[in-house]
Structure formats: structure tokens, C-alpha cells
Design a protein around this nucleic acid. Structure first.
Lengths: 108, 108
DNA sequence: ATCGTTTATCGTAAATATACGATGAATGGT
DNA sequence: ACCATTCATCGTATATTTACGATAAACGAT
């Protein structure tokens, strides 16, 4: 019987699996990790602040910010021509819980 | 002064940042998340077991396993023609600690 | 109304990731 | 020695990511 396990074949596209993978993927680039760490430190900032910080063009930074926003890890609030970014702490907490679960459930 | 912040320009390639990003990147695909979850459940398994589980070709699964192994998240032990995979729990714990740090240090 | 500032988006080139089938390497069993 | 099994790797096609410069859009200030 080579019919694959239906449970896992379905699970691979389950919401949790996809969500978790998407968040990990968003954090899977050094520049985006830096952005998260920076936001953790200063709470909120503009795109331009990050452009000053990282050796990347403005358009590239904007792209990375979009990536993090799409994954739900940060929020962006438009303020006139500027956009103020901050961490989405609920999402980060959810991510943390998911990662913790990875470790713990061996000894359930 | 548009000289970028030297600290951050260096940090983006720091060991921790790169390591963390690499681990996240490895977890940034649903199939690989499934593999980790599966290994968490059954402790150790062969490549073929995962091929049965996921709707992917053997070569693709092997590639995903290599990806996880390169990131240090799993270990592979060759046993004759077979390879027995298991989680690298120390690495997973390190990863968990890094993620936890992401959340906590706001209220230091 | 025009200008400067800030950011997102477009177009695009180069690199990387993802998937597959085919093949090769390792070994256990006959 | 030979065959079957298991897995990694190669070759390859396609898709995605990453980076940039150029441009457009949104506003605040003059």
C-alpha cells in the first residue's frame, strides 16, 4: 500500500503547518532577523531608519518589511508619506508558543 | 552621515543572526516542518518512512532532509544502505531559546 | 500649486529553492 | 557473485527570492 498517509498528506497543508512555515520563512533571512531585533529594541520605526542601519537599498528594505508584514510578524501604520512599523507581539507570541511546542512534547 | 551603523552592518553577518536565520530558513517549508513534527513523534526514522508520509518523491525528501541536517536541526546516522534520522535536541533547544529571547526582552 | 521627503511598487537580473526522474553507491541477503 | 533495498547525488526545468535603480504615490510644508 503506497497510498501515503492521508493524515500527513493533509497535514502538510494544514493551517498550522503552513502558518508556522510561513513565519519561519519570513525569519529566514539575516536582514529580516535584524529588522525584528531592531524593532524589539526601539519599539517602532520608519522604513528609512532601517535603510540607515542595513547595507541595503531602500527598495530592498521595503521588500523585506513587506515580507515580514505578510507573515504577520510586524504591523505597518501609514502616517502620511511615512509608514511606522512595529512588532506584532501577539503573532510573535504565537510563534514562540509553536516553537516551544516543538521542543517539549517529547515527554508528554 | 550616511555611513550606516557599523554595528548593525556587522551584526547582519554575526554568527547568531546567521545561525538563527539559517535555522528559520530550514523550517520555512511545510514539508520540513512536517518532517520535524514526525521525528518529534516517532523519535527516529528512515528517509523511506517520510517518503511514505509525504506526497513527494524520494529525491525531494532526501533533499529536504539534507537541508534540515545542514541547518543542524536533525542528525543522520548511516546504517548500511539506510540512514537513520533523528532530531538534534540540543540544536532545537538552542533555537527555542533564541525564539524565546525574541519575545521577552521588551520588558527587561 | 510646487517641492521635498518618505515609501511602495515596477521592471529586471542573478541567485537560490523546489521538484522530478535517472543514476550511482552502499550493503544485506541469497 | 548477484539481486533487492535504501538513500544520496546529478542533471534539469520551473518558480521564487533577493537585490538594485527608476518611478509613482502620498503627504507636509512653503
Amino acid at each position: 500500500m503506497k497510498s501515503k498517509d492521508k493524515f500527513f498528506t493533509a497535514m502538510i497543508h494544514s493551517n498550522d503547518t503552513e502558518l508556522f512555515a510561513a513565519m519561519c520563512k519570513a525569519l529566514g533571512h539575516p536582514a529580516r532577523v535584524m529588522i525584528i531585533n531592531y524593532l524589539k529594541k526601539i519599539d517602532r520605526c520608519l522604513c528609512g531608519d532601517i535603510v540607515e542601519l542595513l547595507p541595503l537599498a531602500q527598495s530592498t528594505v521595503s521588500q523585506h518589511l513587506k515580507c515580514l508584514k505578510d507573515a504577520g510578524l510586524i504591523k505597518g501604520e501609514v502616517e502620511g508619506p511615512k509608514t511606522c512599523y512595529c512588532l506584532d507581539k501577539k503573532m510573535l507570541e504565537k510563534f514562540t508558543l509553536m516553537v516551544d511546542a516543538l521542543n517539549k512534547s517529547s515527554q508528554a
